[in-house]
Every structure is written in C-alpha cells, then in structure tokens.
Amino acid sequence: MKQTNVIKVENLTKMFGDFTAVNAVSFEVKKGEIFGFLGANGAGKTTAMKMLIGISTPTSGDAQVAGFDVYKNPDDIKKNIGYMSQKFALYDDLTVKENITFFGGIYGLSRHQIKEKRCQLVEELGLQEVVNELVSSLPLGWKQKLAFSVALLHDPKIIFLDEPTGGVDPITRRQFWEMIYKTAHNGTTVFVTTHYMDEAEYCDRVSIMVDGKIEALDSPKKLKEHFNVASMNDVFLKLARG
C-alpha cells in the first residue's frame, strides 16, 4: 500500500444469498482527498461503506482502510476512522456536553483531552449558549455540524459521511461543506455520500455506483468532459438511467 492511499479496495464483493450487492469494485482514495461516493438508491453504496468501516465482512476481494485489513483488523479500522450518518449521529436525550464527553470516552480520549477538545469545539461552532441543552432541542443544522465535529474528536485518518446534509437548509448545508473543506485541508480524508449533485461538484473525485459496480470514477471536471454534459446531475442521469 502506497503511503498516500488511505483506502485501497480491490475486487471487493458482497453477496446476500444469490444477490450480489457489491460486485468486484476497485478504487483508491488518497490522503486529504474529498471522495464522493454516489449511486442510485439500492446501487450498493451503503453495503460497500459498511465493509469499509469494518462492520460487515466482505464475501471476497480485498480492502485496506487507514492501513488496516478489513478481514483481519476491523477493530483497528473503527479506531482510526470517524463515521457520521443522517440517521444516527448523536444521542438526543443527552446534552451537547454529555454527547461530547460520551463519544470522547468511547474513542479512548483522556478526561483532560476531552475537556480541551470540548472547549475548542464549542468555541468553533458557537455553541456556548446551548452546551447544557439536550441535543434534541437543537435545530437540525446545528446537530449535523456538532455530529461532524464529534466524529472528528479522535483525529481520525478518514471520516465517512453518509448523506450528512439531507434536509438541511441551504445556508447550513454550505457551512457544513466549509467544515468538510477545512477537514480535508488539514489532511483528513473525507469519504462522503450525497443525493445533492451540486455537492458532488465539491468533491476532488467522484465514483458512481450502478447495480453494485462502479461505472465511473474521476474528478467532476473530467466526468463532465467525458460524458459531454454541463453538470454532475446530467452525468448521474446519463449513467444511472443506462
């Protein structure tokens, strides 16, 4: 594995019975890259992502994530990545402070480190007023920004974001992407799925899955050139409609 590739996937396959959800996909993701992982509903994105974060064992093929093998060291993968999804991110019935402390503890940070990280995070996100409020009382956009920061508490090498901005208002959605840019700028790799095609344009490279296979993988610019269309939305429509 080259030093600069933090994800390396070769012929990764997952079958459920005789259904092939992920069909021999291969790709690499570089350090500090923003990698967009797109596909229609049911194309196999979630299944592929579950294998990469070490919670689902592949049927065949190889994958190295953050330097660890998905078969041999799934627990080391979990320690070295962050994960955030729209569906599950934070505990609604814990306060902002309690969530940070809880996740800091899970990731094995010391009390001192947790306190330091918490102060820094609360300051950066401007959450001083609501630090002792229940997370359930926060607007969705704040929750998502907090969840993102919490997933980065342990300085992971890679952060996986599963539709992080679904339903979020357009201003907050852009603030969220500024956080993504900053994270990538600081050297953390960002692996992100989205249904917003304008967000696909923000990625350094984008892969598009169709029926379990990766049908396209390149920078948004090159994909648009290749398919001779003006936007990523058109690239997506062309590919996914077959």
């Binding site: 596909g39 509903n41 194309a43 249904h195 997506f236 429509l237």
Partner: peptide, 10 residues
C-alpha cells in the same frame, strides 16, 4: 422525494 436519488426524483 427526500433521500431519493436524482433519477428516481426526476
């Protein structure tokens, strides 16, 4: 159409 991919949305 929330959470639905662009093709199905269209």
């Amino acid at each position: 159409t929330t959470g639905v991919d662009p093709v199905s949305r269209k």
